[in-house]
């Protein structure tokens, strides 16, 4: 939108496969919600209102991963209608927990285990993938769920025509700011060094290791983290599962290359 234009930005908030935690978090911004609806023209937000319109959009916020043919089509349609697409939450950004089975065969096996030979009639199931497997994504807002402060700041910046300003370093930085004693140094498998900051190192503040729910940080040194955990006594399968748990696709290349390493 041009600066100074009186028209409010047209925004759509969409949910694909996920727990709806990100949409819920947006609704949970109680103090700011009225300002949000005042500042933008929210055309579609299924969790918040019933008079939803599927028209042209300035910005689409998309939560969840793609796990059916119908979602894929919905997503392609959103991309066609929206000038800017923002992936919100770990599922949209990296596939989330439902994409933890990286291998197509593993996924097929697991699918069979859950659904048996049932015929899927209303849509075709797909192996779960982040939205950028199908469309171009302009901005990513990770989190499980996304953080309130980061969401509001991103929303606000987008309204003003600025790109989001996110922390680009790892959870360790916030962890140190919070003056935690490092769990990894005590032999506890913490994924802080390879995970993007933004959550305020909340798990470590409560003495729990980071499980990587904000997805990999841009510069994640997966090789070093992997071997460090190996040296601390964890086995290949454990580390692989841990790394793939929330952000399978973000780790896929690395974990794929690692195959030969299995001891």
């Amino acid at each position: 939108m041009e600066k100074g234009s009186k028209e409010k930005l047209k925004i759509g908030i969409y949910e694909l496969t996920g727990c709806a935690g990100d949409a819920l978090l947006i609704l949970d911004c109680e103090k700011e919600l009225i300002d949000m609806f005042k500042a933008a023209d929210i055309q579609s937000f299924l969790m918040a209102k019933s008079d939803n319109i599927d028209g042209e959009l300035d910005v689409a916020l998309v939560e969840g991963s793609v796990s059916t043919e119908r979602e894929k089509e919905e997503l392609l349609d959103i991309r066609k209608r929206a000038k800017t697409v923002v992936a919100i939450g770990i599922c949209a950004c990296f596939g989330g927990i439902q994409a933890a089975f990286l291998d197509k065969k593993d996924w097929e096996k697991n699918f069979k285990k859950v659904y048996g030979d049932k015929k899927m009639t209303h849509t075709k199931p797909l192996q779960s993938k982040p939205i950028d497997a199908y469309i171009k994504v302009d901005y990513y807002l990770p989190g499980c769920p996304i953080g309130k402060e980061q969401f509001l700041s991103t929303f606000n910046r987008i309204l003003r025509g600025h790109p989001p300003e996110l922390y680009r370093f790892s959870v360790c930085v916030e962890c140190k700011w919070n003056e935690n004693d490092c769990l990894l140094n005590k032999g506890i498998p913490c994924l802080g060094p390879i995970t993007r900051a933004g959550c305020g190192s909340i798990c470590i503040n409560h003495n729990l290791p980071c499980v990587g729910c904000w997805g990999p940080v841009e510069e994640a040194n997966l090789t070093s983290e992997f071997h460090l955990l190996r040296e601390k006594g964890f086995d290949y399968d454990f580390i692989k599962k841990k790394m793939a748990n929330f952000s399978g696709t973000g780790m896929a290349d690395f974990l794929g290359e690692l195959k030969g390493e299995k001891k």
Binding site: E32, D35, M36, K38, A39, L152, S153, F155, N156, R157, L159, R160, E165, F169, S170, C172, V173, K176, W177, C182, G192, P193, I194, E219, N221, T223, S224, E225
Partner: peptide, 29 residues
């Protein structure tokens, strides 16, 4: 460099480091 996790811990805990960055926090509306 191959091993460093770029976690920033060394820098954050060092008593003689002093670099900082700034970020805007605008309020909605």
């Amino acid at each position: 460099g191959d091993t460093c996790l770029a976690c920033g811990s060394c820098t954050n805990v060092c008593p003689t480091c002093g670099c900082y960055n700034i970020m805007d926090k605008q309020f909605l509306g």
